[in-house]
Simulated scan of single mutants.
Amino acid sequence: MAIIDKIALTLAVIGALNWGGIGLFGFDCVAFLCGGQAAVLSRVIYTLVGAAGLWCATLLFRDSEEERTPYTA
Rank of each mutant, 00 (worst) to 15 (best):
L17P: 03
E65T: 14
F32E: 07
Q37I: 02
G26R: 06
V30C: 02
T10W: 10
G21Q: 04
V40L: 15
A51N: 04
T10P: 00
M1P: 00
F61S: 05
E67A: 13
P70S: 09
G26T: 03
P70K: 10
V44P: 04
A16S: 15
C29E: 04
I7W: 07
G50K: 00
N18C: 12
L41V: 14
D5A: 06
L48T: 02
G36A: 07
A39N: 15
G26H: 02
S42E: 02
D5G: 01
G21R: 08
L41M: 12
F27M: 00
V49D: 04
A12F: 06
G23K: 10
G15W: 10
A16N: 14
V49W: 05
S64Y: 07
L59S: 13
G53E: 04
G23R: 02
G36L: 08
R68Q: 12
T69Y: 05
A73E: 04
E65W: 05
R68L: 13
F27K: 09
G20C: 13
I22H: 01
I3Q: 12
T72W: 03
G21N: 13
A52L: 05
I45L: 15
T72I: 08
N18K: 08
Y46L: 04
F61H: 09
L54K: 10
A57R: 09
P70G: 03
C56G: 08
G35E: 07
